[in-house]
Design a protein around this nucleic acid. Structure first.
Lengths: 148, 148
DNA sequence: TATCAGTAAATCGCAAGCTAATCATGGAGG
DNA sequence: CCTCCATGATTAGCTTGCGATTTACTGATA
């Protein structure tokens, strides 16, 4: 069998970390009725500024529209976001965080920050920057593939 | 809003890459009836040497047992693995790749290798090593958490 | 030997990723 | 104006991650 090279290991190790992050964050947000994915949705909506369409938000999150639809369904049901009709295009719907949840968002963000720092403890910023550059390059490379 | 620091971005960027890897590999293995997760299962079984129990394989893959059970169900149905009874412990089952699929495995591995190299094109080994060290440290850090 | 805690696997149900297909609306060209 | 393709959102259905529970067996101890 081939020896394990850094290149071999990369995709698996990467996926493992992603699973761990999701699992631990889900655990810590559970009592607030929020999951990692729902929180991420709110973060992106906040960052995008409100008034985004679903397609725009999905693009920001780099997920597909049907995945977002379900996340929004649950967030809307919890009263954490609103879908308002768009006057310029009756197909589209504009997304807003409900203003009731500023406190709530701070709490979520705080918990996520704490977890993140626990997971990244002892890791240098310079190393994280290298990792981020690797991620970025992977995304660039894979953007041009699509087919075999 | 806070500026985006490397630490902030890390979990999202990491997750994005993991989704991309899975999606593209699923695409390229689809015509062989195999998914990224099923292939990974076979790779780990091959690497572990056959005769592993399900618990041992799940540990190798860093996934939970119920997740593995379903993957094995589908692989068994496709005739790619076997679950044999264990004589020493009648609760356990020992896992083996069927020998019919050596060719098949080579094909899968080859496609995965090609995709991996396409995605990692232009990235230095030294940078990948840094990224792997980061991953490893994250896993160590998070192993000791469990609860808030 | 009988009991009983522990362990391997399986089952169930939820979450969140995806594709394909559907529906309504928009917009361009005949 | 009508037709027809494009596009935003949704729905349906698959996969694979998870935790909780169940089932069958093991092994230690009373």
């Amino acid at each position: 069998m081939d020896p394990q090279t850094p290149r071999d290991q990369f995709p698996f190790a990467n996926a493992r970390v992603a699973r761990r992050w999701r699992k631990l964050l889900d655990e810590r947000l559970k009592d607030l009725g929020v999951t990692q994915a729902r929180w991420f949705t709110m973060v992106c909506l906040q960052r995008g500024g409100g008034g985004l369409t679903q397609r725009e938000l999905a693009h920001l999150m780099t997920i597909e529209n049907p995945t977002l639809v379900r996340l929004l369904d649950s967030l809307e049901e919890q009263g954490l976001i609103e879908r308002r009709p768009c006057k310029r295009d009756r197909r589209a719907r504009l997304l807003y965080l409900t203003h009731a949840d500023e406190r709530f968002m701070s709490d979520l963000n705080e918990r996520a920050n704490v977890l993140r720092e626990e997971m990244l403890k002892g890791i240098e910023n310079t190393d994280l920057e290298v990792a981020l550059r690797v991620f970025e390059r992977v995304m660039e490379n894979s953007a041009n593939l699509k087919n075999s």
